[in-house]
């Protein structure tokens, strides 16, 4: 697990955003901004993802979808909320169908503000997520090693 930092895989899900942040997430993965230079790969499969990017707020219909995607991801995992809507609900906060930000569904680690969030700040969020991910996977490794040595001692 020591090398995960060099190639984190990102899963992107559009909550109920206006699409502005989604195209900026895609723009940050394509040339000019090119998050792939940090080894970031965009995947469509939650089972192979390390970082979950959520854009847009949570509504009554996608609540279960977001929870399911989060549950399917292997541990350790990091969640990044991209855009004002994913952080708090944003301009749509008062809408009848919006429950709030992404943290209404899953625990969010990193908040990237902006309407729409700029590619630079999205990449900054991903880089911070990668550091957090590395820390969590080191802790995970240590816990596994401790459990192993514990069983051998017996």
């Amino acid at each position: 697990m020591a090398k995960v930092k060099e190639s984190p895989w990102v899963l992107h899900y559009d909550g109920s955003s206006c699409n502005g942040c989604d195209i900026e997430v895609l723009a940050s993965l394509t040339p000019v901004y090119d998050a792939e230079r940090f080894g970031v790969v965009n995947t469509g499969d939650p089972l192979q993802a390390d970082i979950l990017l959520i854009t847009g707020g949570i509504n009554t219909q996608n609540l279960s979808v977001v929870k399911q995607l989060y549950d399917q991801m292997p541990r350790p995992k990091v969640v990044v909320a991209v855009g004002t809507c994913a952080c708090t609900g944003g301009i749509f906060k008062e809408c009848y169908n919006i429950l709030g930000g992404a943290d209404k569904a899953v625990p969010v680690d990193i908040y990237v503000p902006g309407c729409a969030a700029r590619p630079q700040s999205i990449i900054d969020g991903i880089v911070q997520a990668v550091e957090l991910f590395q820390k969590r996977s080191d802790e995970h490794d240590a816990a596994v090693a401790a459990a192993k040595s514990g069983t051998q001692a017996k």
Binding site: D14, G15, S16, S17, G56, G57, N59, Q61, N62, V65, F92, E94, C95, Y96, N97, I98
Partner: peptide
């Protein structure tokens, strides 16, 4: 309905 916000009601 996955992205429905109801912005017309705003």
């Amino acid at each position: 309905g996955f992205v429905h916000r109801g912005l017309e009601s705003l």
